[in-house]
Design a protein around this nucleic acid. Sequence first.
DNA 1: CCAAACTGTCATACA
DNA 2: TTTGTATGACAGTTT
Length: 584
Amino acid sequence: MGWESHLTAASADIDLIDILWRQDIDLGAGREVFDYSHRQKEQDVEKELRDGGEQDTWAGEGAEALARNLLVDGETGESFPVQFPADISSITEAVPSESEPPDLQNNLLSPLLTGTESPFDLEQQWQDLMSIMEMQAMEVNTSASEILYNTPSGDPLSTNYSLAPSTPINQNVSLHQASLGGCSQDFLLFSPEVESLPVASSSTLLPLVPSNSTSLNSTFGSTNLTGLFFPPQLNGTANDTAGPELPDPLGGLLDEAMLDEISLMDLAIEEGFNPVQASQLEEEFDSDSGLSLDSSHSPSSLSSSEGSSSSSSSSSSSSSSSSSSASSSFSEEGAVGYSSDSETLDLEEAEGAVGYQPEYSKFCRMSYQDPAQLSCLPYLEHVGHNHTYNMAPSALDSADLPPPSALKKGSKEKQADFLDKQMSRDEHRARAMKIPFTNDKIINLPVEEFNELLSKYQLSEAQLSLIRDIRRRGKNKMAAQNCRKRKLDTILNLERDVEDLQRDKARLLREKVEFLRSLRQMKQKVQSLYQEVFGRLRDENGRPYSPSQYALQYAGDGSVLLIPRTMADQQARRQERKPKDRRK
DNA sequence: CCAAACTGTCATACA
DNA sequence: TTTGTATGACAGTTT
């Protein structure tokens, strides 16, 4: 109802929240946050490198030139696949299920690899992440992008994770060829096979290097193989050919969507959050449900947080015996006091527990619903029944407010004076008007009982009027107190929500980095595996296929087909368009 | 003494 | 209509 207005009214609270948010934004993107998982993956990479150590040597030969090639492509964002003119008509038999390029691509990988890294989970999480990150990126889109592209490395991930010398190539390739749709799944499909391969996958972007082919094919010399493998125009170096050749199979897997998403995610990373804080938050906050529970439950949770708010507010007030109970309920987070919602109000009324009564402490108010408890204050009952303290102000019909200080005369009156000071104005008025029952009853009795009580006495019009005023004011006072508590609780809940959101944000960012890392690794594996498979293929003459003329394609029936480049290029182009059209 | 926080009250809207 | 509740605004009180 009045949330916004309340918040605007409580500017200090707003400031608090604002500070929290600014904190969130101002905190730089912390790499330490990712360090743990980062190191884990790094170790994995290193492990792979160690396992395939011999591959590093041959890969290193062409790494420099290769790196040059791929780095350029990576930075420009150009897609590798489309480098050869397409001529589909000439080769129709090559691709059985040409009408479904995406499936082709997906199926291409599936026969080779059966996912061991739970592709479903990963992809689903990935997509979830994406959606979240998109939202995050929206917040910081403008400012963060500048930050992102002004960073020396440009790619925070590449700076974060040091890979083998030859890996940068792969990183670039993978990052720019990434496709949101099928890539993660496809890569996952590949991974098991890669694992079984003797080749070091992580460092083998260049598949068709001489050493590789020689080891695989004893029939031909390494030099011959390279000559066969790479077409004249590309034959300058093996690396040159490898550049255009590699991306082809991967190109279909990766589309612009992935690039966009990745950049969005990078933006989100650059947006920054305190890594230390995030990790701390993560430690102390394991459950992901914290946010949703809290926020969704905020209306009703007001009652729970009421404890906190009441403790905070009442603790500041000197005279709160209720504060003790309130603060105790604070720790429990389940205390029921007042509630902001009508639903809980019902509860409240049913239980007879009426919200916060700081004045409870003053007047020992108990349950408003229980008249028996109203007599807890002896002196009040005393006043009501034996008029001991009504003497002084007795003549004050016109003056509703007899100044308490004016009553003190004599030793006995000191006590009366003290009690007077403990009384509220309305109680003074009631005493002055000789109201025969306590204000507590006046205020807290149900209507029926209240009317019953009134009927028992012969009251003047002035007395009745005062009683009605006392009742009205008393109820309104409670309402005001509850209102203020509620306002406080709202603020506290908002603060808690902010904290929860910060935790979620930190967690999601960590997950994102994790996913990106595994994605990159899988891309590398896919590339090396592709090269491995392609390099083993031989034509009818026993010669290897030229990577510039042929590419591997995945058929719908689970088999892998060798198709002409032109064909693969066309399919890759088709797949590039599809997501674009979808976006429009 | 001042400022901020707290508290009670009123007016008003709403259920 | 009556009764009760919620809340902004104001003023008095306390810290």
